[in-house]
């Protein structure tokens, strides 16, 4: 119980005194997670849109596969990317292992399925008649997909927020691909794992609180953007 209080006090202290190492780690965490989420969004929203709109053989299989990958363990995502970019692997020549870029790659892959799947769900939530109207007005396929995505934008934004949440909170892939290298690939989750194994329990809790504070800030910005655009919803 004492440690939890100590953790809270330490978190406030670290934030107020602008502890340089904590700030550096937090900024890196935010950069990596945001970039991963941005890449995953750029890929998953159009892919989700296409899968939803097109009828093709094996569609149900693909949807089931995507939904199964929601359960992809972060360590396995990390291991998969590790085998690809390790020097002995097929993309070893890129030297991405133990770099922030490698971490972005792993996190993007990790959150792609959940974001594509939730985009699909969001599009399915759009009124059927709306879709028929759009098509009957003579829209091309691209226009139709764009209009549907536009209709479902808030649910899709929810998918983006969830993807960001999974990226910023995961430790398995970050540890395996980044290697928790101080001053280079150490992010909040791997720092928490390290501090815990060093016995610095209250500092771990403090870093956890800072991670949640960052997530809160990101969510608040998203909320503000939503509200500004929809004043009379």
């Amino acid at each position: 119980m004492n440690e939890i209080l100590e953790g809270l006090v330490q978190a406030v202290h670290l934030i107020v005194t602008l502890n340089p190492e904590v700030i550096e780690i937090s900024v890196r965490t935010l950069e990596i997670s945001l970039l991963s989420t941005a890449i995953a969004t750029i890929v998953s929203v159009p892919v989700g849109g296409l899968i939803h709109f097109r009828e093709f053989r094996g569609k149900r299989v693909i949807v089931t596969l995507i939904q199964t990958l929601y359960s992809l363990p972060t360590v396995i995502a990390g291991l998969f990317v590790f085998l690809l970019i390790s020097r002995a692997g097929p993309f070893g020549f890129l030297r991405l292992l133990f770099t922030p870029a490698g971490m972005v790659l792993a996190q993007s892959l990790l959150i792609l399925p959940i974001m594509a799947g939730l985009t699909l769900t969001a599009l399915s939530g759009v009124d059927r008649s709306k879709r028929d109207t759009i098509i009957s007005l003579g829209a091309t396929e691209t226009q139709t997909v764009l209009s549907l995505i536009h209709e479902a934008r808030f649910a899709i934004l929810g998918a983006v927020v969830l993807g960001f949440g999974r990226a910023i909170s995961e430790v398995g892939a970050a540890m395996m691909i980044g290697g928790n290298i101080r001053g280079f690939t150490r992010v909040l989750t791997t720092a928490i794992a390290l501090e815990t194994s060093m016995g610095n329990i209250s500092l771990s809790l403090a870093l956890g609180i800072i991670l949640l504070a960052i997530a809160l800030a990101v969510n608040l910005i998203v909320m503000l953007v939503q509200q500004e655009r929809v004043p009379h919803d």
């Binding site: 700030i23 970039l35 941005a38």
Partner: peptide, 30 residues
């Protein structure tokens, strides 16, 4: 909407990166 959101977020991160830690603020690719 999405574009503005992401630009804001990335811009924020970038600015924070620049002011916070000059040497470590950007993500080196290779």
């Amino acid at each position: 909407v999405a574009g503005v959101a992401f630009t804001l977020l990335l811009l924020g991160a970038w600015i924070a990166g620049c002011t916070g830690t000059p040497s470590e603020g950007t993500i080196p690719l290779t």
